[in-house]
């Protein structure tokens, strides 16, 4: 039997985002990742809001991914 997915939401604060095209980059990378339901960059508050399945991916991994594209996560 398939267990019910547990969807969690996490928000990361990034350094001030200056170009809206960065959002597409971050969203693109996150949405490709297994277990990510939806990733949304809040450009104007420089935050990333991610809904993910905690069985498949950890929030640390998501944080690592964002930093890998070149955007330091503040909190």
């Amino acid at each position: 039997m398939k267990t019910i997915k547990e969807i969690k939401t996490v928000k990361f604060q990034l350094e001030t985002l200056t170009c809206p095209s960065c959002s597409q980059k971050i969203e693109g990378v996150l949405n490709k990742e297994q277990g990510v339901e939806e990733a949304k960059v809040l450009f104007n508050s420089s935050k990333v809001k991610i809904q993910y399945d905690s069985d498949e991916v950890t929030s640390d991994r998501l944080k690592e991914l964002i930093e890998k594209v070149g955007y330091p996560v503040l909190s």
Binding site: C19, S21, K25, G28, V29, K68, V69, G70
Partner: peptide
């Protein structure tokens, strides 16, 4: 970094 993840960037 972006290219390695196959992302296009300015």
């Amino acid at each position: 970094k972006a290219a390695r993840l196959k992302m296009f960037s300015i």
